[in-house]
Write a protein that binds this DNA or RNA. Structure first.
Lengths: 213, 213
DNA sequence: GTCCTATGTGGTCGATGTCAACATGTTTCT
DNA sequence: AGAAACATGTTGACATCGACCACATAGGAC
C-alpha cells in the first residue's frame, strides 16, 4: 500500500546529475510532504515518522537527506524565502518598477504570507532552534528577499519617486508593515479574504504616505 | 538538595483566600519559572519535568494547576497580554493622551516586546495548539490590549487630532507596524538597543504621518 | 566482477507529555 | 474532636518521538 512512488525514471542525464537512486528525489518529496502536513495539521503535528510513513518510506530515511528535524524545517524556511523573493521580484518587474511596483510588492508579500502560511510560519515562527543565531535563516535567504526590497526603494529614491533618507530604514519600515499585516491576516484577525484585500490596500497606501512617495 | 522552597507561610488571611497548601502558590511560581526558562533557553527547551525539578517538585505536580503543557503556555500568553495592556494604558495616560500619548503607546508596545520577549514570542509565536481557533488567546486577552489602542485612536478622532475614517482600520495599521517592528527587534535584525530606539522613533513618526495626525 | 559510496531499514535508547492509582496535607461538617 | 471531603503532590506506567547505531541493498567506478 501507498505505492512507493513509481517515479523510477533513472534519467541518466548529462554529467553528475545524480538522482533517482531508490525512491526518486526523496529530499524534494519530503520537503513537500512536510509543508503539506504543516498546512493541514500545524507545525506541532509534524513528525519525521509521519513524513516517512506518508511517503511509504521508513522513518530514518530522512536522515540521509537532512541532518535532523530542525534541518528539515530550515529547508522549508529557505524554500519560503526563495519563493518570496521570486514573488517580490516578479511583482516589481511586472509593474515596471516605480511607485506602482512598490505597491505591488507590498501586496505580493501579504498574498504570499496568506497563500503559503505554512512556509511563512516556519520562516518567522522560530519553530527552529530558537537559540537564534546560527540557525537563523535571516542573514542568508531572508537577505535575498529583503535585499530585493532595499534595492527597489533605493531605485525609487534615485529616480526621485521617493524622498531621500536612509533607504535601509525605509525598507525596514515597509517590511515591518507588510509583516505585521501578514501576521494579522494569518492569525485570523482579518476574517474574510475580502477583509484581507481591503486592509492590504489600506496599509499599502498608508506606507506610501508615511514613506513620502 | 533543591530545598523544597521554605515558603510555608500559612497565611490564614481573610475569607476564602486559599493559598499555601503545601508549597505556596505553585501556579504563579510555575508560570514564572516557565517564563524564566523560555527566556534563557527558548520555548523548545521548556519541559514540564524541568519546571518541576527547578521548583523542587515532582513532574506531574503541574497538572493540579494546569490542564496540560499548552495550558501553561496559554497562561504565559494571557499574562503577557495583561501586562501589555497595562503598559499601553500607562503610556497613554502618562502623556495625558493626545498625539504624544499615541506615540508613547507605540514606543511602549515595542519596549514591552523587547523586554518581555519570552512572553511576546508565546503570545504570537503559535507555540500553542496551532489548530488555531479555540486555543487562540486573541479574542479575549488580546482584545483587551488591542481595545486600548482602538479607544485611544477613537478619542483622537473625536478630538480632531486625527483624521476621520474607520478607526478600526487605523488601529489595525498602527498595531501591524509596532508588531512588525517588534519582530524585527526581537529577531535581532536591529542589533543594538540604540538601533531599536532609533528605529522605533522613526516608525512611530511614520505611523503618525501615514495615519494623518 | 569487485570495491566504494549512496541510500534505506530495523533495533534501540533517552526524553517527554500524559493518564491512573496512591499518599498526604488541609478544610469542613457534624 | 473525629470523620468525611477535598486539595495537592508523588510514583508507576505507557505511547510517542528524535536520534544514534549497525546492517542491508542499490548503483556506479574501475
Amino acid at each position: 500500500m501507498l505505492m512507493p512512488m513509481p517515479r523510477k525514471d533513472t534519467t541518466k542525464g548529462p554529467a553528475g546529475a545524480r538522482r533517482a537512486y531508490h525512491h526518486g528525489d526523496l529530499p524534494r518529496t519530503m520537503l513537500a510532504e512536510a509543508v503539506r502536513t504543516i498546512d493541514r495539521q500545524g507545525i506541532a503535528a509534524l513528525t519525521l515518522r509521519g513524513v516517512g510513513a506518508k511517503l511509504g518510506v521508513s522513518r530514518n530515511a530522512l536522515y540521509r537527506h537532512f541532518a535532523n528535524k530542525d534541518a528539515l524545517l530550515l529547508a522549508v524556511a529557505a524554500e519560503g524565502f526563495r519563493l518570496l523573493r521570486v514573488d517580490l521580484q516578479g511583482a516589481w518587474e511586472q509593474k515596471g518598477g516605480g511607485a506602482l511596483g512598490l505597491d505591488a510588492m507590498g501586496a505580493a508579500y501579504i498574498r504570499f504570507a496568506v497563500q503559503h502560511s505554512s512556509h511563512y510560519r516556519v520562516m518567522f515562527g522560530r519553530a527552529l532552534g530558537e537559540a537564534g543565531e546560527a540557525a537563523s535563516p535571516d542573514p542568508s535567504a531572508s537577505g535575498d528577499a529583503f535585499g530585493t526590497l532595499v534595492v527597489a526603494i533605493d531605485t525609487l529614491q534615485r529616480t526621485g519617486v521617493l524622498q531621500g533618507g536612509d533607504s535601509l530604514q525605509l525598507a525596514r519600515y515597509a517590511w515591518a508593515v507588510v509583516h505585521g499585516v501578514s501576521m494579522l491576516a494569518i492569525d485570523g484577525l482579518l476574517r474574510t479574504p475580502a477583509d484581507v484585500e481591503e486592509f492590504t490596500r489600506f496599509a499599502v497606501a498608508r506606507v506610501r504616505t508615511g514613506i513620502g512617495a
